[in-house]
């Protein structure tokens, strides 16, 4: 089995050691390349750590405003319906400031693919609480741990989205080879759904933020297995418009 980094990842990424973004960047690139569409793809890239992607990713990209990537992608896709259009966003971007743009893209069943990286905090700005931050998780704005009596529960966006009329919704993680391979399959299914004009596809990926979690990378992956995955269940939730869960 020959393996070589995809051409889209043309220089080394700029993420922290052990950051999941590097793996996800590569998975997106591999899928686009394997499907033969990477030269015909356009990405709308979020603010946050995701914004480091265009510097190292050889696909036509636009830097969206904070939270608006799904709306920007919808504008592109509606003008250029024959191109593959995706967003690449973190949890602060897609679910806090951009909740409305994300949800309404799903509500309108826009024929785009949203790649949503859940690392349960605002990475780029220094590890503040995100909508996905776990109960009791310490962040720089929840120094005593997230108090859900004040902040509400961690946001499971797929639970909110899965009853809408969309094409494909899945959640994967990066904690081991098997999960990474599954996540890659989800990404492929999402892009295929878009190619078939089935509508909105959404892949949430549980990913480590070693720097802000102040964890060794291996420990960070263990934390996802042990503490994150029970809150954000893995699997396929909508496929070809059929609801699975």
């Amino acid at each position: 089995m020959l393996k070589k980094k995809p051409a889209a990842c043309f220089v080394d990424n700029k993420y922290c050691p052990g950051c999941g973004h590097g793996i996800i960047n590569r998975l997106v690139a591999e899928v686009l390349e394997e499907m033969g569409i990477y030269e015909e793809s356009i990405g709308a890239i979020a603010v946050g750590c995701a914004s480091l992607m265009p510097e190292t990713f050889a696909v036509d990209c636009i830097q969206a405003q904070h939270g608006r990537a799904a709306a920007v992608a919808a504008g592109i896709k509606r003008c250029r319906p024959d191109k593959t259009v995706f967003t690449y966003q973190g949890d602060g971007d897609a679910l806090a400031i951009g909740f409305s743009e994300t949800m309404y893209s799903a509500i309108r069943n826009e024929n785009i693919t949203v790649i949503f990286v859940n690392n349960s905090n605002f990475g780029m700005t220094g590890g503040q609480m995100a909508p996905t931050t776990l109960e009791n998780q310490k962040t720089t704005t929840t120094p005593r741990g997230r108090n859900i009596a004040e902040t509400g529960d961690p946001l499971n966006v797929i639970n909110m989205m899965k009853d809408l009329n969309t094409a494909y919704i899945a959640r994967g993680s990066l904690t081991n080879n098997a999960n990474i391979m599954k996540t890659k399959k989800y990404i492929r299914n999402a892009f295929e759904a878009q190619q078939n004009s089935e509508g909105f596809s959404f892949i949430e990926i549980l990913s480590p933020c070693t720097t802000n979690w102040k964890m060794d990378p291996i420990k960070a992956m263990e934390h996802i297995e042990k503490n994150v995955t029970p809150v954000y269940e893995l699997g396929v939730f909508v496929e070809r418009g059929e609801k699975n869960a």
Binding site: C9, G18, G22, N176, I180
Partner: peptide, 10 residues
């Protein structure tokens, strides 16, 4: 597969 930094090639 598990490397975030494209270190490996076969």
């Amino acid at each position: 597969n598990v490397c975030p930094d494209y270190v490996f090639e076969i």
